[in-house]
């Protein structure tokens, strides 16, 4: 966007001033957009909720991506960068809650419900298999091979 110029300017300025000691230690090649996006994909900016950082068009998100590029240039790893963002902005920047503290619940509850569901379905099976009316013999035994054709044909007759 048109706002990029000042950002580039400031980034360059700051690269020179603020980060020059760090920068000097591990000056790698400038990371490509793809490398930046690979990290950004996994982050969510609080300004535009529920939009991944790599595709978010706002100015704030553009700045975040520039920061990721900066950190990558400094030789930070993906995990270090993610941790940095968590420290700065809280766990909400991660695409899923981390496995710690209260957030355990998000991973525990669905399996519990699913297990309960399996149990209920299992019980339903058993309950339904118990004859409700012992006199009723539901399906007469047929030879399995012609079962299907018989069914279709029977239906055809019914629906004439």
């Amino acid at each position: 966007m048109k706002k990029t110029l000042p950002i580039l300017f400031f980034s360059a300025l700051l690269l020179l001033f603020v980060f020059s000691p760090v920068f000097a230690q591990s000056a790698g090649p400038t990371p490509s957009d793809d490398e930046v996006n690979a990290v950004a994909k996994q982050l969510f900016c609080p300004v535009c909720e529920n939009t991944p950082l790599d595709v978010c068009p706002t100015q704030a998100c553009a700045q975040w991506r520039d920061l990721i590029r900066l950190k990558l240039t400094e030789g930070w790893t993906e995990d270090q960068i993610k941790q940095y963002f968590v420290d700065q902005y809280g766990a909400r920047v991660l695409s899923a809650p981390p496995l710690e503290g209260f957030s355990w619940f998000i991973y525990i509850i669905p399996p519990i419900f699913l297990a309960a569901g399996v149990y209920i379905v299992f019980r339903a099976f058993r309950a339904m298999r118990k004859p409700v009316n012992a006199a009723v013999q539901e399906t007469p035994v047929q030879t399995p091979s012609d079962d299907y054709l018989r069914r279709v044909e029977e239906e055809l007759k019914q629906r004439k």
Binding site: F44, N50, G90, R92, S95, A96, P97, F102, I106
Partner: peptide, 12 residues
């Protein structure tokens, strides 16, 4: 409960 916001995104 915790006062902290979390994001539940596509990976979950």
């Amino acid at each position: 409960v915790t006062g902290a916001k979390v994001t539940v995104g596509p990976p979950f």
